[in-house]
Amino acid sequence: MKILVTGTAGFIGYHLVKKLLKRGDEVIGLDNINDYYDINLKYARLLDLGIKKSEVKSKQLTYSETYSNHKFIKINLEDTEDINKLFETEKFDAVCNLAAQAGVRYSLENPYVYIQSNVVGFMNILEACRNYGVKNLSYASSSSVYGLNKSQPFKTSDHTDHPISLYAATKKSNEMMAHTYAHLYGISCSALRFFTVYGEMGRPDMAPMLFADAIFNDKPIKVFNNGNMSRDFTYVGDIVDGIIRVIDNPAKSSDKFDRNNPDPSISSAPYRIYNIGNNSPVQLLDFIKVLEKVIGKSAVKNFMDMQYGDVVSTYADVSDLIIDFGYKPDTSLNVGIKRFVKWYKEFYFIKDNK
Rank of each mutant, 00 (worst) to 15 (best):
M1Y: 02
L4N: 08
L4P: 09
V5P: 07
V5T: 08
T8E: 08
A9G: 13
L21C: 14
G24E: 08
D25W: 02
D25N: 15
L30S: 02
I33M: 12
K42F: 00
K42N: 01
Y43H: 10
Y43C: 07
A44M: 11
A44R: 13
G50Q: 06
I51P: 11
I51F: 13
K53F: 01
E55P: 00
K57V: 14
Y67S: 09
H70F: 15
F72D: 08
I73T: 09
D82G: 00
N84D: 12
E90A: 02
E90K: 01
K91R: 14
V95K: 04
V95Y: 03
L98F: 04
A99W: 01
A100I: 01
A100T: 02
A102T: 14
G103R: 04
V104H: 01
Y106E: 13
S107F: 03
P111S: 06
V113K: 14
Y114G: 03
Q116L: 10
S117C: 05
N118R: 03
V119P: 01
F122E: 06
I125A: 02
L126Q: 04
L126R: 07
A128Q: 08
A128D: 05
R130F: 02
Y132T: 00
Y139R: 06
Y139Q: 04
A140P: 05
G147M: 05
K150L: 13
Q152S: 09
K155S: 15
T156I: 11
T156W: 00
S157T: 15
S157W: 01
H159A: 01
I164H: 07
S173L: 13
S173F: 13
E175A: 05
Y181S: 09
C189K: 06
A191L: 09
T196E: 14
T196F: 14
V197P: 10
Y198I: 04
G202I: 00
G202A: 11
M209N: 13
M209P: 00
I215T: 05
N217S: 11
K222N: 14
F224S: 15
F224V: 09
G227Q: 09
N228K: 15
M229L: 12
S230N: 11
V236K: 09
G237S: 10
G237R: 03
D238W: 08
V240P: 10
D241C: 00
I243V: 15
P250C: 12
S253F: 03
K256T: 11
F257V: 02
D263Y: 07
D263L: 06
S267D: 08
S267W: 08
Y271H: 03
Y274S: 05
A299G: 13
V300M: 14
K301G: 01
K301A: 10
M306T: 14
Q307A: 15
Y308D: 13
G309I: 08
G309F: 07
T314D: 12
Y315N: 15
Y315H: 15
A316Q: 06
D317E: 12
S319M: 10
I323Q: 15
D324K: 11
D324F: 07
F325A: 04
G326Q: 06
Y327E: 07
Y327K: 07
K328I: 03
T331D: 03
T331H: 07
N334F: 04
K338E: 15
R339F: 00
K342A: 15
K342V: 04
Y344A: 06
N353W: 05
